[in-house]
Amino acid sequence: MTTKTTQGGTGTGTGAPDHGSAGGFAGAVASEWVKLWSVRAPFLCLLAGLAMTGVFTFYYASIARINGHPVQPVGHAAASSVVLVQFAVVVLATIAVTSEYSTGSMRSSLLWVPRRHRVQAAKAVVVAVVAFAAGTVFAAVGTAVAWGAFGGRASFEAGTVLAQVLAVGIYLALVAVLTVGTAFAARHPAGSLSVLVTLLWALPSVLLGLGGPQLAAVAGRLPHGAGDRFLRAVADAPHTAATAATAVLTVGAWAVAAHLAGLYVLRRRDA
């Protein structure tokens, strides 16, 4: 039996089209799920994210109480913590991709699932689900911590709190997809993390630090700027529903662009 190269991977030269490994996309997702939890790094990333959320929200609420800030929705503390906590998800998603390039196991993954888009999509689905679940837990814990630390300087409405908790999960899920695409494009943890730290933190900070409405508008169209607007707008829904929708679509567009860039590199270059 001879072998031939097919789009997205290697297949057998039997003349029949290669439809990928048994189990199709569901099988690929199951495989990625097992691979993700077979190492300790994801657990450490999630524990770090939970710890950062608790510390950040306690600090945020304590400062608001000490300085006598105006009363605000208690969920704003958890929403503000995302600027830091998102990097726990970024590291987790980066490891899910680049660890396979580092060990050479990506070649095995592409042999088992020859359709390359399926491998990338399965990884994106798995890390997005994990990031959404983790994000909602982080936000719920952070809100509980902040409520005590605010000392009466925050308002609590169940609907608003639930909306912001879910919004944090949605934003972190989109960040996870963006990270997977970036990691497939960079193929190296240092390169991937450099791009993401610049995009999610350094560049927005510089633009806002320089000041001016034009630079602030640019920062607002970057992933975290749009994400922060989304997390805060949901607290005032339905009055800000259009703002929230536009903001989350902006983050989604960045995630799709990164996914397509990663897929382009994955299809063009050998593992």
Rank of each mutant, 00 (worst) to 15 (best):
V126W: 09
A190L: 14
A216E: 12
A140H: 02
V125K: 09
D228T: 11
R116H: 00
T5V: 06
L200N: 10
Q214G: 03
A134W: 12
L215F: 11
V145M: 04
Q72R: 12
R268V: 00
T182A: 15
R267H: 00
A139H: 06
A233I: 01
V248S: 02
I63V: 15
Q214V: 10
H188S: 14
A258D: 11
L162T: 13
R268N: 03
V119C: 05
L215I: 08
G159P: 13
G142C: 05
A16E: 12
S108E: 05
A163M: 06
P114S: 01
A28P: 10
L44C: 04
D270W: 02
F184Q: 02
F184H: 15
F87P: 15
G169S: 04
W201L: 10
Y59S: 12
A242N: 01
H239P: 00
V251C: 07
L166S: 06
T198G: 13
A202I: 09
R187E: 10
A219K: 09
Y101P: 01
D270F: 00
A88C: 08
H117G: 12
L162Q: 13
A16C: 08
L210C: 08
S99P: 11
L172M: 07
T94V: 08
T5R: 15
V83R: 15
G211Y: 10
A235I: 05
L207T: 12
F43W: 15
A128R: 05
A77V: 09
N67V: 08
P70N: 03
G75H: 06
A244V: 00
S102G: 12
A128C: 03
V248Q: 04
V129M: 03
D18E: 14
V126H: 08
A122G: 00
A133K: 11
A79D: 15
V130G: 04
L162G: 07
V180P: 05
S80D: 14
E157I: 03
V141E: 02
F184M: 01
P114A: 02
L203I: 10
A244R: 02
A190W: 10
M106H: 04
T160N: 09
P17V: 12
A190V: 15
